[in-house]
Amino acid sequence: MANKVQNAAADALAGLLFDGMTIMAGGFGLCGIPENLIAAIRDSGVKDLTVVSNNCGVDDFGLGVLLAGGQIRKMISSYVGENKLFAELYLSGKLELEFNPQGTLAERIRAGGAGIPAFFTKTGVGTLVAEGKETRVFDGEEYVMERGLTADLSIVKAWKGDAEGNLVYRRTARNFNPMMATAGKVTVAEVEELVDVGQIDPDHIHTPGIYVDRILKGPAYEKRIEQLTVRKRETHAAPAAAGEEV
């Protein structure tokens, strides 16, 4: 078996990138995103990309850096989020957008990884989502046909992995990553912790190594919060001293 472990993100992507390719990128908001691989894609200068991802990062981080560099031609996603540039590019006609209900996007990716070319769903029937798509009636209910999705390359981020590419995701980072790992012609994973083969309990593995072609330990992770909302502390009067009138 070829050695899957790579020393750096650029090494992990060597020979895989080309203009006009389709890339799936795991993550939900800014949680569980393959940020080191995204940075390496930015640095490569590859362009005219179609990117499949729930959202497109924020203006200065995650997939947002590829938008800022003009490297993305089309997004297949379900959420514009807090990325102002995403909205501006779409509304000005400079970015093509294939918008999906979030559950439909997840199932399209899962179907692609499972070798299912299409499926029917009630979600989106009678809306803009269904325009131009085949519909069919089952048991008196109308359904719209959605196509499975695959990619030239899937980039995913996990909490822990081993040298064979077995992956474990942690909490919310177990979002689009597992299904995207199955739907790429080539899958590259970055992990926070890289361990020897045999150190991960087989019952704890979320993505089997057979789906992963290359793996690297990311040097650092920012773990940003996309939007932090707090309320002002309530002010309380100091307690009255003994015998003092209140």
Rank of each mutant, 00 (worst) to 15 (best):
L128N: 12
R108L: 01
P117A: 12
T172H: 14
K4E: 04
E226M: 13
G26W: 04
P117R: 11
S78V: 00
I205G: 06
G57C: 07
E222H: 11
A10P: 01
R147T: 07
G81T: 01
I76M: 04
E226F: 03
G70R: 04
Y211M: 14
P101T: 03
Q227I: 09
F120C: 06
T235K: 12
H204K: 11
T172Q: 10
T104R: 05
L49M: 03
A106W: 03
G124I: 05
H206G: 02
M145N: 11
R171S: 15
E141W: 07
A40M: 09
L49Q: 02
N55G: 10
P219A: 09
E193T: 12
Y143K: 04
V168R: 12
I41V: 13
E245N: 10
G20D: 00
P34K: 08
D48C: 00
G148N: 06
L153Q: 03
G243Y: 11
Y211H: 13
A106N: 08
A130H: 05
I23L: 01
I210D: 14
A25D: 05
A68S: 11
M75E: 02
K157A: 12
R233E: 15
T229L: 15
K133L: 07
V46K: 03
K84H: 09
L30G: 01
E98R: 03
A220V: 08
T150N: 02
D59W: 06
I109E: 11
L216D: 02
E142H: 01
D60T: 15
G112P: 05
G161R: 05
Q227A: 12
V230Q: 15
A111E: 01
L13R: 08
D60G: 15
D213W: 03
A238M: 07
L91M: 06
K84E: 13
G243A: 06
L30I: 12
V65T: 14
L67G: 00
V129C: 04
P208L: 14
E88H: 00
H204P: 04
S53A: 15
G113R: 09
K122W: 01
L17M: 07
Q71H: 02
A111G: 08
N7F: 06
D152E: 05
G64P: 07
A40T: 11
E134V: 08
